[in-house]
Amino acid sequence: MGSQTFARAACVALLGVCALGSVHAQNPPDLTGAWERYRGPPGDATSPPPEPIPPLKAPLLKDWQARRVAEREADARGEPIAKGYTHCIPEGYPTMMNGPFPFDIVQSRSQINIAQEAYSQVRRIYLGKPQKKFEDVEPGFYGRSVGNWENNTLVVDTIGIKDYVTFRDVPHTPQLRVRERLHLVTPDILWDELTLEDAGVLEKPWTVTFAYRRVPNYEIIEYVCEDNREYADDKGVTRLRLKE
């Protein structure tokens, strides 16, 4: 019996309250502080694997690829298609983990908060709590996240994302579930492996890995989307409001 299996069995037998499959670390790594996206040299052990295209079911994948082509063509014409940010709408989860702005993590034994500087977005991960049923979570921009430490890996489960809050413009159903595994690959490089599960649209789970590096002493700057002079015209094209 491996140590992890033994610990899991002890957890169930002695306490009877541990979440199935979790092994609580006595001294989990401290992730508190500021982080920013990191891309190391190709092939370096700290560089995450390349991002695969979403394994969408065939008709959906065709539509998704057609939208990518339409966006590139619109950009080339100088008429980019307006998106949520044009209306000052934050990206939500999991896109907020993409950056590009820094975020900070505040960690306690019962909760971990991740605050993305762009749009002052915050997600809260409740440690040691069970996940609710889909029907008991009202959909939102960040969903409901619960987590546990499995040895030195923070394992997070998130459900309850609004249908129009999408990652990479990939559609999803109300049954979207995102599982994350956050762990330090070096003392100052953090990986977040996100696996999206949604049998309604995906042929198989889709895993994307982001890497971040610590930014010592950086203090997150406030961000209020106060006045975007870019706007969407009646055709949905991004324009700039000028002053005379």
């Binding site: 996206r37 891309r39 990518r68 966006e71 590139r72 619109a74 950009d75 080339a76 100088g78 008429e79 980019p80 940010y85 990206e91 896109t95 993409n98 950056g99 590009p100 762009a118 990479r168 870019e230 991004t238 324009r239 700039l240």
Partner: peptide, 13 residues
Amino acid sequence: AVGTAWAHHSFAI
């Protein structure tokens, strides 16, 4: 490096 497609803002205008 993200590529403009996934940046949260486009400068294509």
